[in-house]
Write a protein that binds this DNA or RNA. Structure first.
Lengths: 160, 160
DNA sequence: CGTGAAATCGGAAGGTC
DNA sequence: GACCTTCCGATTTCACG
């Protein structure tokens, strides 16, 4: 894992494509080299399938944290949402009903980065309080929501 | 959106590939028909990119619910985890530190299905209590975690 | 190990049922 | 709308630096 690998992986996500061409053009790395690197990443277990999905544990982003966010002015949530979403490592931000104003999910590489994350939250003007929860194990972390349904249910609920 | 569309979409996720061949073989739907259908789904906005990611809102799974789960015997969480993960619609299950034992995330098509979800949770033997939270809006729902980092940070944290 | 050029494979487009 | 066939472009492989 070096800078080129990271450039390639990030480009794949950014461009939302599996095309080696597009990645090559965006990074300036020759097509055949992109291909060669991707093969290595595949063998190393970082890339897991034909859709070039990344195994975050293998990559090193193996810490998962849930952060409940309480804001000062509930009216301003439209302002706070984007700010929370901008914090490095945050992958999901939900504006919720009930006590908590926002629920955020983050993926992090180290314990130090958790401290950094929390202080980034606390530094936001509208945030009054946060409550962080470490995830011990991810029992299920599906990126493929349809797999959690039987075909029958999907047809029943969604077919027109 | 009909049964064939759903079969195709589900197969793409299941096989973890973007290959029309593989989908054709798995579903029994001819290659060119798969291709034709995918084009339509693309135009309809259900499929959003070259990686054939699905827009769950367009598909109709537009409700997001967070469920906190409290269990009776904390020792048994290894047994409970898979059971929770089996509930239809649940996409993520995290075993967490602190008060709550599990945090689950679900994607659902209708208000009725929310009721069904909660009763599925309550029906589990080891579950003592649940606390459900509706997500009003998803401020950020990235499927591409690396986008939440700058290239510099990633290199710094992950490069060897 | 990284790269350019040749070979191979798979998807895209158009016509037909 | 579903399907077959032709064609073209992309991916992969190979040989060399």
């Amino acid at each position: 894992m070096d800078e080129k690998d990271i450039q390639i992986l990030k480009s794949i996500e950014e461009l939302e494509t599996t095309s080696t061409d597009a990645v090559s053009e965006a990074t300036g790395i020759p097509i055949s080299t992109v291909h060669y690197r991707l093969n290595n990443l595949r063998e190393a277990g970082v890339i897991t399938n034909d859709r070039l999905d990344i195994d975050l544990d293998e990559l090193g982003l193996d810490i998962t944290v849930l952060v409940e966010v309480f804001t000062k002015n509930e009216q301003n949530h439209r302002k706070s949402g984007p700010k929370i979403a901008d914090i490095e490592g945050v992958t999901k931000v939900f504006f919720t009903m009930g006590e908590t104003d926002f629920m955020a999910l983050a993926r992090l590489p180290s314990s130090e980065s958790v401290e950094r994350l929390i202080s980034d939250f606390e530094a936001l003007e509208d945030v009054s309080r946060t409550n962080s929860t470490f995830v011990i194990s991810r029992e299920l972390d599906s990126h493929y929501p349809l797999q959690q349904y039987t075909a029958e249910t999907l047809v029943e609920e969604l077919a027109e």
